[in-house]
């Protein structure tokens, strides 16, 4: 009994952790991707200041994702990481450079352009690698007897390149709508201008991926096409979000674009899960195959159900403390 339900509960917790990471680190990575296109250096200050207080906490969700997978679904950890070996390295290197440039950009004047570059490239590389992970997940992995047996670049295919670029567009969209919320004046006007373009890019990638996925993955094709069921509501909701996002930008609303961008991500993410469920290491292994021992999942669950709400409370508190607009020329430094 408990063996049946624990993996389900854990799938929920890990799923929650992953989307938390994607949404929260997504908008700050997205600002990095938009960096070179910003109107001027002052706008860049605003962009960085708008995420400065929170990016570090955002990234802790990634660490939780890593450790949580090891604790609850070790098969995912021990297949994905070897399979994505080079990609993981690139992602970590990107995150490191981006992390330190965050810190040192403001302290440099002569060398500032280097830190601008490190921030942009770090964010872009890390995002591309994460997007490629999504593509590789849809493709599936060569696993025999619970061990990855593929080679170093199986994860790098035209399909994963597309998902990598798609996620870059997606995070940039999140970043732009976040900037609408947090900035004003010409910076905000710029964000309003680029948002529809980014939305268009996201929708194009979304369409190509949707047409392509059934070709690279048979089970996905069967899931979506064999019978029409409830899951079709997810892409529909995603499109509704996209439409609302467009309309709210046209009407110059400030909060709604960001909320709708979040919605677009959430429904796409749920659609992705629905394509695979309950498989967690495609093509063959389900959440039950991938689980750690029940006593381990239980031991961890007891702590996590108490602690995660407290963590969420901290997080909400920090966002609350730093609510409001970031002004040009104001800010920290």
């Amino acid at each position: 009994m408990i063996d049946l339900y624990l993996p389900l509960i854990w799938a929920g917790i890990i799923g929650f952790g992953v989307i938390m990471y994607v949404l929260m680190d997504g908008f700050d990575l997205g600002l990095g991707i938009l960096y070179p296109f910003a109107p001027d250096d002052e706008a860049r200050d605003v962009m960085m200041n708008s995420v400065a207080p929170v990016w570090d906490g955002n990234e802790t969700w990634l660490v939780l994702g890593g450790a949580g997978l090891l604790g609850a679904f070790p098969l995912v950890y021990s297949v994905f990481l070897p399979a994505l070996y080079i990609g993981v390295f690139l992602m970590l290197a990107g995150l490191i450079f981006r992390g330190i440039s965050f810190e040192f950009r403001f302290k440099s004047s002569k060398n500032r352009h280097w830190w601008n570059r490190a921030f942009c490239w770090g964010s872009a590389v890390a995002t591309f690698a994460q997007g490629a992970v999504v593509g590789a997940y849809i493709q599936g992995f060569a696993v025999e007897d619970f061990v990855y047996v593929g080679s170093a670049f199986d994860w790098l295919t035209p399909f994963t390149v597309l998902t990598g670029l798609g996620l870059m567009a997606g995070y940039a969209l999140l970043g732009a709508t976040w900037l609408i919320l947090k900035s004003e004046d010409y910076v905000q006007a710029w964000a309003y201008r680029i948002t529809p373009k980014l939305l268009l890019a996201v929708l194009i990638v979304f369409a190509i991926v949707s047409l392509w996925t059934p070709l690279v993955s048979l089970p996905v094709r069967e899931r979506w096409l064999n019978q029409i069921h409830l899951i079709w509501i997810l892409p529909i909701l995603a499109f509704v979000c996209a439409g609302m996002l467009y309309r709210s930008v046209k009407r110059q609303q400030e909060k709604l674009p960001f909320v709708m961008a979040l919605g677009l991500f959430i429904f796409t993410y749920l659609g992705l899960i629905a394509s695979k469920w309950p498989v967690i290491v495609p093509p063959d292994y389900t959440i039950w195959d991938a689980s750690s021992a029940p006593e381990s999942q239980l031991f961890l669950l007891i702590g996590v159900v108490f602690i995660i709400p407290i963590v969420l409370a901290y997080t909400a508190w920090t966002y609350w403390v730093f609510r409001g607009k970031v002004k040009v020329g104001e800010g920290y430094h």
């Binding site: 802790t60 949580g68 990481l81 750690s292």
Partner: peptide, 21 residues
């Protein structure tokens, strides 16, 4: 990865507790 897979029942929860606590 073989080590991670074999020891995950212990190391996984311990490292996760480190993150959350």
């Amino acid at each position: 990865s073989n080590f991670a897979q074999a020891t995950s029942n212990f190391l996984g929860p311990v490292l996760s507790y480190e993150v959350v606590t």
